[in-house]
Design a binder for these strands. Structure first.
Lengths: 294, 294
DNA sequence: AACAATTAATTAGATTTGCTTCACAGTCAA
DNA sequence: TTGACTGTGAAGCAAATCTAATTAATTGTT
């Protein structure tokens, strides 16, 4: 019984696919197939219901995955910890975070982190949906605010988040400067569509009341940088996390409007499952990026 | 990284010897030596300080062993649990217990247990000293009374323990019937020596006071059965757990004396570490022997 | 002080294991 | 139906792992 076989099993559960799991583990699908078959034979239990098009864990497979996930994490952490005694912190950190947080809080500091921690491997998956980082096998995630599952530790990363509505001066001169959020209905708004298909609503605070507007407009993008670019080109108004627009605002290519209506949004938070022993790589990762955000 | 390699590592820590660990794992010492060396190379840390005469874990080795022990137990339990879904409870139970408890509470029922649980392997180590069952890698132990380490669950097994002083009728007629524990100094007591070298003291309760007498006599044994046999042969008086003498008492070959002075001793207790998920083999083992003791 | 006995490390050789390649079968979408 | 995709099985090969034999070091004994 090899440790890596059990890791492979968990990878199949996570991906719901032999091939995808094989890619992650750097094996061929055939090898994985044999590994799982050997495991099933050993345990005398069928672990997956396979139709050629989908791989779904059986009840037994689901149970095994839930039991094995924390135990294997413990073992990995133990080995990493001992490895870190002699030399530098080592191990792997798998992070799950939405694009804006990655763009402004993580990626800019990544080169320095990797340089100063040569024995740590980092894996970053961009994902805006709320995933269960434990079930999906992540070590750490980033989310807005504090609504965390229990047994999670959350640390505020960076200042409170600010969204800005921006447009090019030319566009605003031509189409008119909106005075209130309601005026937006007369203008072209650049919309943001999530992979899930929903349109990102624009939220404002008027007095004591929070309102949400579903923006109307001819351009829909799925990436904040594209929205900023389009706004700069005078196509319409964009609403993005402030840092995306900062550069163009300073250089006068964009103007911020309606800022007295922008609601105060909670800051980004790093969060991770509270465990008996934190892997040293994760400890180094969190320490570094918490300090970098200050 | 194989699971069995880590188990082997723990075996070396437990035994403090490559050879002994190799015997337990069914390998040659050579294989174990290579396994440990590969592990050390991988972790870039020396795990043992070897002098040819002793193998002592380094600080790193000790840390790894403490971290790995519960994690590997979790994995073993997870696999056993899944194995038990399709068929019968399966796995291995390692028990540590003193000889009298084994003789009267475990061994008599072992054949039936093994017959009714064909997929469970049982390993029984007779040991009178108080060992740390977690550190030594046992699943369950038996001890008198309730002074347990924390995080241990203790279940009373069988009735309260009773020790009896016995002698043959001929011997007592010849040498005189003692009326009080103090009278024993005039007679030949058959002594019991523990492996540690200490002589088992004879405890009595006089009124409200507990006293201990170090018995004097010409015969010293290390096994209660031998003491009973010698007493039956008229060599002297023996003090043993009541069940050892029961048969000879009924048949008149032995007579119990001083029984109004015998102290009430606590019952035997099964104890085991409290864990999130109990291995199914252990659950079956405990259920069976608790029921058998009634 | 020398020898015997015990134990771990090392090397070489044989076996086993595990992975990849290739071919095949079943399923879903166009 | 066709074509793309996915999981399974067989054959061959490379690498890891075990055993056996030897060496080295230490301890206890005579």
């Amino acid at each position: 019984m090899r440790q890596s076989d059990l890791e492979s099993f968990l990878a199949v559960v996570r991906h719901g696919s032999f091939r995808a799991a094989a890619r992650e583990r750097g094996l061929t699908g055939s090898a994985l197939s044999q590994t799982i078959r050997a495991l099933e034979e050993d345990l005398q239990v069928r672990l997956f219901n396979r139709t050629t098009r989908s791989v779904v864990p059986t009840e037994a497979g689901d149970l095994l995955a839930r039991r094995l996930t924390p135990a294997l994490a413990d073992i990995r952490a133990s080995l990493d910890e001992v490895r870190s005694i002699g030399g530098r912190p080592s191990g792997r950190v798998r992070m799950n975070a939405p694009a804006p947080a990655l763009d402004w809080l993580i990626v800019p500091h990544l080169p320095e982190f990797l340089r100063s921690h040569p024995d740590i491997a980092v894996e970053i998956i961009e994902d805006a949906s709320n995933v269960d980082i434990v079930a999906e096998g992540y070590d750490v995630g980033i989310r807005l605010g504090l609504e965390m599952a229990q047994d999670m530790i959350a640390l505020p990363l960076g200042p409170e988040q600010d969204y800005a509505v921006v447009g090019s001066p030319e566009y605003l001169e031509r189409e008119g400067w909106p005075e209130t959020p309601q005026d937006l209905t007369l203008l072209d708004c650049i919309r943001h569509r999530f992979p899930s298909g929903t349109i990102f609503p624009w939220r404002f605070r008027i007095g004591e009341e929070d309102i949400a507007i579903v923006p109307q407009g001819r351009l829909t993008v799925s990436n904040a940088r594209h929205a900023v670019e389009a706004a700069t080109a005078g196509i319409g108004l964009a609403r993005v996390a402030l840092p995306y627009a900062q550069g163009d605002l300073r250089q006068g290519r964009l103007v911020r409007i309606l800022d007295r209506f922008s609601p105060q949004l909670p800051a980004w938070h790093l969060y991770y499952p509270s465990r008996r022993h934190m892997p040293p790589a994760l400890r180094a990762f969190i320490d570094f990026f918490m300090k970098a955000a200050r």
